[in-house]
Design a protein around this nucleic acid. Sequence first.
DNA 1: CTGTTAGCGCCTTCAA
DNA 2: TTGAAGGCGCTAACAG
Lengths: 360, 360
Amino acid sequence: MAASTLTEVARLAGVSPATASRVLNGSARTPGKDIAERVRQAADSLGYIPNAQAQGLAKSSSGLIGLIVHDIADPYFAAIARGVQDAAREQRKMVLLATTGGGPAEEKDAVAAFAARRADSIVIAGSRSCRAEDQEGNAQLAAELDRYCRNGGRVAVVGHPVVGATALEGYHVIEVPNQELAGRLAADLAAGRDGDFVIIGGPEGLYTSDDRIRGFQEGLARAGHGPAEVLRSAFNRSGGYEAGLQLAARIKAAAAGDAAAPKMCIFAVNDVMAIGAAAALRSEGLRIPRDASIAGFDDIETLRDFRPALSTVRLPLEDIGRLATRATRPRPAGEDQDAAPAEAVTGEVTLRRSTEAAAV
Amino acid sequence: MAASTLTEVARLAGVSPATASRVLNGSARTPGKDIAERVRQAADSLGYIPNAQAQGLAKSSSGLIGLIVHDIADPYFAAIARGVQDAAREQRKMVLLATTGGGPAEEKDAVAAFAARRADSIVIAGSRSCRAEDQEGNAQLAAELDRYCRNGGRVAVVGHPVVGATALEGYHVIEVPNQELAGRLAADLAAGRDGDFVIIGGPEGLYTSDDRIRGFQEGLARAGHGPAEVLRSAFNRSGGYEAGLQLAARIKAAAAGDAAAPKMCIFAVNDVMAIGAAAALRSEGLRIPRDASIAGFDDIETLRDFRPALSTVRLPLEDIGRLATRATRPRPAGEDQDAAPAEAVTGEVTLRRSTEAAAV
DNA sequence: CTGTTAGCGCCTTCAA
DNA sequence: TTGAAGGCGCTAACAG
């Protein structure tokens, strides 16, 4: 037994399908009160639910927003997803979720799938990469997005433009000032500190990671420090953990040689890596901030109760998701198209206990 | 410029739309090799992407799986979502996300929206409630699900059946042994401990919370302890925090009266609440496990690096999501329908530092 | 204000 | 094996 159709409702109400459509779904004005009521009752008694697929086909629009993330269980993406979801509700749309693991090839597939479903817009979160191995994937992704935009789709990318994508109409980028913020973090950290700085970064070629590294180095330079050494590992907790183990060994060696060795200050390019690194140090018997300072980036909500409290850069993740989604909303006629305010995302350096100078 | 259609591809290839359809989308067998190649090339050069809406309309099925959660940014739901996403990929379907904040009324709306989109199946995660205020919402939700199932939809609910839903064909429940596991946790905790037990629970009427409370009390009873006092607060971090503040005051008062007062053991019905409570104790100058023991439930991944490591019950959240999704998969003809193994979810008591007896 | 007539893009009988 | 025809459920133009 399939769901009942508009035609059935119309028949039961003794009107034409067109009329039924007009009263049940938002047409210009609902027809005669009496008729309207009859139709509504018929619909009710039949438990009528409009077929969104058919509506979409007829109107060529789907009320769908596609969201692409690396991993929905990663709190970074989960927070963005919440914002997207929120903005989608405002627009009375539903969100279609695709998780890609980060590869541009999978992202391209996701875009194609969204295009097939005629998603009204697509939000892409997650770091872009310019690694050689991703070159072809990036090109294909760019092409797919291009086509999607050309067909009237709207796209918002969080953080960094898709490599090779042309600046088409309907293509928005929500810039995240990773570099600048990392610079500010470095400056704040460098103030009155003489120890070595070490950066735990993601794989080379990840823009988010690279931008944060670059910014941090600039910040150090401005503060009169030499560049920090950069350790590369996976862009997740276990990457941080592994790098942390290396650093722990180094810290212990230094302490053995010279008890008054200046304290190392570690900057992990995101909170999750920082937590991993901290866990590694701890597992080696080191204490933070006594034996080393550590800072992250993102200010993941779930991690705020972590002790020692993690110094980091607060990013308004949920807002970012919201902004990205809103950026794809077609401006109501009358609103200045170019006036797209491109609302700037800003973050905030948040110094906490994990980088306190006082040796406990 | 709209996306190109199958008809256009057919015309370009000099064949009929029917033939083009057969080669591009999985029909019984792809027609003549030469023809097939021509069609494929035409499709390629036009950048043809099948219109899933139209396909869905024609086949009356959408390739969509609807997922309902309270809040996608909550790591509990995010973990489940990952499992759902994973299973969806196996089935070559996409997932539609709806977040409801936990109200049955919103859940009902979500189900209706999924039904409108002709989602092939729906997975509902998040605690059911039997509070008076939710009564009407529950009834409507049950009715909506009922209708959805009757129209051929398949549903899986995580944890506890929807109140009032009839056991229809296509309606599955993934049972989570909350009660039993909480009992085991209580037993393990009670072994050789003489202090008071206090439970921080969610609002009365939330099945997940109530089951865990009940199980914990039973476990205590079996271990020869009297029932623990139950504090009710919100089912999230701040609920835990507030309850934690109350308990902190009580602990400090007790310590003031009698320095050797037995240590309080707190069971929060989920990890996030436990973390909140721990933060509250800490903010009041208390230390765990020195001044109080604390345990949670779920074993949220992001919280595993929390110190002191939280004793909890590990739930295979991702598997649960996967299982729920698979449960909704139509059994290939030939597979025994009744043989639905209803793969049992099992958890594991995980004692860590937060409940160690040794006063530090 | 209501009903009629065409599609939206695709799939699926059916006949050739 | 291929093509022609009808319909999936709905909306949007046009008549009445």
